[in-house]
Design a protein around this nucleic acid. Sequence first.
DNA 1: CCAAAAGTGTTATGCTTACACCCATGC
DNA 2: GCATGGGTGTAAGCATAACACTTTTGG
Lengths: 241, 241
Amino acid sequence: MSSLMSNEQRQPSAYTYEYPRPSVTVDMVLYAFLGDQLQVLLIQRGGEPFKDQWALPGGFINMEESLEEAARRELEEETGVRDVYLEQLYTFGAPDRDPRGRVITVAYFVLLSAEEAAQLQVRSGDDAHDARWWNMYDLPKLAFDHDRILEYALQRLRWKLEWTALGFLLLPREFTLSELQSVYETVLHEPLDKRNFRRKILSTGVLEETGNKREGDHRPAKLYRFTAKAIELEQARRRFP
Amino acid sequence: MSSLMSNEQRQPSAYTYEYPRPSVTVDMVLYAFLGDQLQVLLIQRGGEPFKDQWALPGGFINMEESLEEAARRELEEETGVRDVYLEQLYTFGAPDRDPRGRVITVAYFVLLSAEEAAQLQVRSGDDAHDARWWNMYDLPKLAFDHDRILEYALQRLRWKLEWTALGFLLLPREFTLSELQSVYETVLHEPLDKRNFRRKILSTGVLEETGNKREGDHRPAKLYRFTAKAIELEQARRRFP
DNA sequence: CCAAAAGTGTTATGCTTACACCCATGC
DNA sequence: GCATGGGTGTAAGCATAACACTTTTGG
């Protein structure tokens, strides 16, 4: 169980263990709401395997950081963003999910506000030669088992919006109720009644008016922000018993 | 990224990698409902670290099995039970959670019926010298970060019973409504109204009468079983929007 | 004045909750 | 016959869902 380095010569590339060990990575599903669409950030792989195919951003963990620290570090290295909403999603570990060998990945789930998505700039790293946002409902073929990870992430996102008021995490700091409704309709993939939506979301007390208006082509709309208590308030009423 | 063995001499204990790798384990939280109490199976460690302290059953994954296969294999090796309700809980990977080095654990969550719990027999393995059920609300000091894992597992179990009708997974194949209510009250840690509980649980259609009665000290009680559709029916009504 | 999006109330229905007494059996 | 747990119904309050028109602005 000891994690000794090779004791003959201190060469790089020499970590020797009594039993075989898997590699462990973190992969991130970054969601943003841009151009009235639910978008996911993918990178195009620059090397084998799956060269030129699209994949989730991510990378190997370091030995001295926690899993969440690894996710936040990779996120900052690859996109420059920090202090975002992030939670662990699921751990994928089928033995054949990576042709290079046994690689277990801990998937994370990130919701970016419009401001965070705008300031994001991809540092095309060593093994990525492109990166861009994709419409969640029109994705390319994906490397590894990343299609399964995205399917799972969409389930989680839907669950979140069905049961909590966290949809505003995907919007700018100030937003209109119509914009918020658009997020819910896009994620849940169904139309919603405007009056019922407004009544329900306002009744939770997580939103407050900013006093400002969104000027546009037509009648200006009131702007809202979410209140401090909103994020931890993942309130949901119970079904049982 | 290659997982070559040492090429000098083919000794056991020689797996050499270019970069350091963590060990990966699975740990299992086994719940059963015994003696009107919510119980958790713990093993007493026979070796260092945390010698003689209580811990969750679990073990290292093999290279050719998936995470869930590893969990089911360990479960069968350590307790003899198979084909149980099992789901992935969360992955714990703080760098200092194991004093022997970097060990990441994927925690699993198991619900045992009364029959499964009864047939369970612990094969005291190499590093366990005792094993027994503990009341979930009166646990000993635990090894590693297993107290955090159990806290998380209890949250998940509560969530499950609040939102689904899966409480019967902890009972025998035939059970009375009072027994089922007792499971809910114990897990949720609050008293429930008998009439409302019965109406609600019966209205879901996941239960059916077996026609048999539980004979006992007093008036015999009708016995129920869950219907086939019950397990996948993790129905819950939405809060938003 | 026209187009476009913002904003607003009411009603019917069904679910939730609170609450108390009789029933069947063993001893 | 009494102690014990099994079994049952109703009414009030609340949340939900369905539904259409007026308001405000820009061009």
